[in-house]
Amino acid sequence: MRNLILEKIATLFLYVMIGFALFLLLRGHNSPGGGFIAGILAASGFLMYAIVFGSEAVLKKIVVNPRYIIGTGLLLSLISAIIPIFWGLPPMTAIWGTLGKIHVGTPLLFDTGVFVLVTGMIISIITNIMDVLKWNS
């Protein structure tokens, strides 16, 4: 049985959550927020979507296998950890530069990696659990 209102809300909720997650990710360095909590929020949007539409719809929505999302997140974090080595600093040292008026640096890259990793991980967990529970059928 389709529930049109719920479907609309779930779709909207997904985009709102992703937008809010990005906001939290970017303000994370100095204010409450950061990669982990942003990842959980984004994934909660996908969770709502999965409850309404089923896990296959989520996998279709994110296009690639969650496995690659996890890998990409880890890769981003690793890159941010080893960049300082080329400056002769110990790994994971924060390196800051300016892009126009905005300060960007390796902590942001690290946080982005955590964000991607957490999102992919939770999506992978919920879709697997839903498969085991036969949620879709």
Binding site: Y68, L75, P91
Partner: peptide, 12 residues
């Protein structure tokens, strides 16, 4: 870092 790099490779 070396095992971590291999793990990322195996993920991707």
């Amino acid at each position: 870092f070396l095992p971590l790099s291999f793990m990322i490779f195996a993920f991707l």
